[in-house]
């Protein structure tokens, strides 16, 4: 960060961070997408970056939040909110008060509803434009940011957006740097008490750990019982691989081509 090299005020950036959850063990950690958002903020030269979290500070969340500090930050602002609270008003008010130019958020939280709505609701409430699925910020100049948006299969799209704006990042953004223990331990978590609003809807819904979704079978709409039987039998014997020995390269390639076609990976 070299603020002196910019004669105008440094770009004010706020990164919204949440407490993640490891998919296998359920332990608290840096949320992957949020950490990528923090990493993205590191790529903005001359930006004044602030980390903002709304939630509780307890044993489970502190290690995770300090994980963000370990990416090279001295402090993190925490808006104190009880579990199951709707953090939208608290965050919106904090952002209105601090007035950053750019807000970076992960696409979805790893805990709770995880609907990915929060950035959209914030954008709606603040009246700011929102760009989702960012891969990189290429340039910020005169109140306009040039962004690279990630599309499926590694494709990219270049966009320009007028600031202030909210951007969200997903797994296509640069991988987060390692969180170092020393800065994480030293960093300051600045807890601010703010009024909380209950999320009444969420409390009414039943949550259970995700069931494995049934794999869709290829349904054969066959006229005769024989065709249906054949289809079912073909599925059952599909376990072993097919080995083509002593074929010409052309025949082999033909078989592979057919499989690639069937899987739809050839464009």
């Amino acid at each position: 960060m070299r603020p002196e090299s910019h004669h105008d005020a440094p770009l004010a950036v706020t990164v919204l961070v949440s407490v993640g959850r490891h998919p296998l063990t359920g332990r608290g950690r840096r949320a992957d997408q949020d950490a990528r958002g923090v990493e993205l903020s590191h790529t903005l030269t001359g930006a004044a970056v602030e980390l903002l979290h709304a939630g509780r500070l307890d044993e489970g969340s502190e290690a995770a939040l300090r994980g963000y500090l370990g990416m090279g930050f001295e402090s993190l602002s925490l808006l104190e909110q009880p579990a199951g609270a709707d953090v939208l008003p608290a965050l919106a008010e904090a952002l209105e008060a601090s007035g950053p130019q750019l807000v970076i958020a992960g696409e979805r939280a790893e805990q709770g509803e995880g609907s990915g709505l929060l950035p959209y609701l914030l954008a709606e409430r603040l009246g700011w434009p929102l760009v989702s699925g960012l891969a990189a910020v290429e340039e910020v100049k005169e109140g306009v940011a040039t962004l690279l948006q990630a599309l499926p299969r590694g494709q990219r799209r270049r966009l320009q957006v007028r600031l202030p704006a909210i951007v969200t990042v997903d797994a296509a953004a640069p991988a987060p740097r390692q969180s170092a223990f020393g800065p994480a331990r030293r960093g300051d978590v600045d807890v601010q008490a703010v009024p909380a609003r209950d999320d009444a809807d969420l409390a009414q819904w039943q949550a259970q750990s995700a069931r494995k979704r049934p794999k869709r079978l290829k349904i054969v709409k066959a006229a005769s019982a024989r065709d249906r039987f054949k289809a079912a039998a073909a599925k059952a014997q599909g376990g072993g691989g097919q080995v083509l020995t002593e074929v010409t390269p052309e025949e082999g390639a033909e078989a592979i081509f057919k499989l690639l076609k069937e899987e739809g990976v050839l464009r």
Partner: peptide, 17 residues
């Protein structure tokens, strides 16, 4: 492990593919 295996010279198979 493979679902489909072709035994042969990989360069030639790739070329044909």
């Amino acid at each position: 492990r493979a679902d489909l295996a072709v035994i042969g010279d990989s360069a030639k198979v790739l070329e044909a593919l």
